[in-house]
Amino acid sequence: MTGPLTLAINGAHPRTVDVPDDERLLDTLRWRLGMKGTKEGCRTGDCGACTVLVDGETTLSCLTLSREVDGSKVTTIEGIADDPEGRKVQAAFEAEEALQCGYCTPGFIVALTGVRRELGPEASTAALVDGLQGNLCRCTGYLAILRAVERVREAPR
């Protein structure tokens, strides 16, 4: 079975596509809509590479049935710089060179943007890092990522 799916992605006007009932949001984004910025890592909810925001909440797109989020607003890495908080996070990752191979980076940037929005600008580094526990960097480049988290906290509002 397939059915209509309407999503407003990255601030664009809602768009409707026909998707199979069992399709994951990750696959809709990557293969149906050609938005390859969202990465597939483990496909089991362990690595966080596929993190997107659904109605503002950090969401593992590999564990989300697309048709269950019909009507939602979705933010992916392609649109993160249009969000002032997302732009700040992205700039901090750039400034700290907080990436090695880069595969986990979209997930980290989207997740940190969502966690900052959820916990508020006063959230401590420890609370932000706790919110990133589900994002893995297989290059183990965590120290630079940690510096980026601290830089975001210290950035002017």
Partner: peptide, 9 residues
């Protein structure tokens, strides 16, 4: 339980 993103679902 899991990570924050997982706990959203």
């Amino acid at each position: 339980v899991g990570s924050l993103a997982l706990r959203h679902r």
